[in-house]
């Protein structure tokens, strides 16, 4: 097991290097290179531009530029924002807790409903509920997140006025209750996409377990249905589900772009969108690298967790 983890970790290193190289190339591929934004201001003379280029180290060979950049990156220095005149790291970290709150709430909603729907559908296979769930999950998969968010906003916030339209709610004003009220709509929108997929997943892995011999044995022994489920089926069905969640968590941070934009949630997703509109490329690059690393780590953890939970996997 230890060797397996070590190998996985080692395997992630070239990936991380690749991520830095691609990000670096991306910055340099921008029309005219990273300083073009300055040049495009149109009001800078050559002297000033040269000074900026020198300051950014652009007069050095590309390899040295890259090495410098990676060195800074390793120390957590993502550069300074063109727009906000302060370190990108601070800008991102400031938004991180808000996004984690949203993602956490979204996950709770998604996991809860996926389990309920998936389990009920599996227990009552081919029943009315089963068909209904599978039909609804089709809708869930077909619904663009942004439009679903828009509809919820128009219905619950604008038409009915039950919930706030946007923002996070100031803790001074309404405290925790107000925060939760603000959280409901965006978290639901963020979670609903996964419910469709995950509940189907839970259903099929439940069915798989139910069909297995030991379940029949258990049932034959006269154990009551519910205890059979909770003791045997559920546990065995949940193992793969956990890893699916692990793989999907980073996608939540990505999905946050759309959700946070619609609901003006002050997290990293909206930061991405705002930076995009302000063409604040250092922040965009920071977020891109951040999410790439998150995805790599998420996959790694899912991998290891799966291996750990499922003894059938051989660590070869």
């Amino acid at each position: 097991m230890g060797r397996f983890i070590a190998r996985r970790l080692l395997g992630a290193i070239p990936l991380l290097v690749g991520i830095t190289i691609i990000s670096f190339m991306f910055m340099h591929l921008m029309p005219g290179g990273p300083d073009s934004l300055y040049a495009r201001s149109g009001r800078m003379n050559q002297e000033q531009l040269d000074a900026i280029r020198q300051n950014m180290g652009l007069d050095q060979p590309v390899v040295i530029q890259y090495a410098r950049w990676v060195g800074n990156l390793a120390r957590g220095d993502l550069g300074n924002s063109y727009v906000q005149f302060r370190p990108v790291r601070d800008i991102i970290l400031e938004r991180l807790p808000n996004t984690m709150l949203l993602v956490g709430a979204g996950l709770i909603i998604a996991v809860t409903f996926s389990l309920i729907f998936g389990i009920v559908a599996a227990i009552y296979q081919y029943s009315f509920f089963d068909h209904l769930f599978s039909f609804v999950s089709f809708f869930g998969m077909a619904m663009p997140v942004f439009w679903f968010g828009l509809m919820l906003q128009l219905l619950f916030a604008v038409q009915l006025g039950w919930l706030p339209t946007s923002g996070m709610g100031s803790m001074d004003d309404g405290g925790i209750i107000e925060r939760i009220r603000h959280l409901i709509l965006p978290a639901s929108v963020l979670g609903v996409g996964s419910i469709a997929f995950w509940s189907r997943y839970v259903r099929s892995s439940m069915l798989e377990v139910i069909r297995q011999d030991y379940m029949r044995t258990a049932r034959a022994k006269g154990l009551r249905e519910w205890s059979v489920f909770s003791r045997h089926a559920l546990k065995n069905a949940l193992i793969p589900f956990v890893t699916v969640i692990g793989i999907d968590i980073p996608l939540y941070f990505v999905g946050a772009v759309v959700t946070e934009t619609i609901f003006s949630w002050p997290g990293m997703g909206r930061l991405f969108y705002d930076s995009l509109n302000a063409r604040d490329y250092p922040v965009l690059m920071g977020l891109l690298i951040f999410s790439a690393v998150l995805i790599v780590i998420g996959n790694l953890i899912a991998d290891i967790a799966y291996a750990y939970l499922d003894p059938r996997i051989k660590y070869s």
């Binding site: 300055y38 201001s41 149109g42 009001r43 000033q48 005149f85 604040d280």
Partner: peptide, 20 residues
């Protein structure tokens, strides 16, 4: 007075003078 800059505005701390 500073149209061009403003257009580019969000990008940078323009160290230029508006000396046109």
């Amino acid at each position: 007075g500073t149209a061009a800059i403003v257009a580019m505005g969000s990008l940078l701390a323009a160290c230029e003078a508006d000396d046109d």
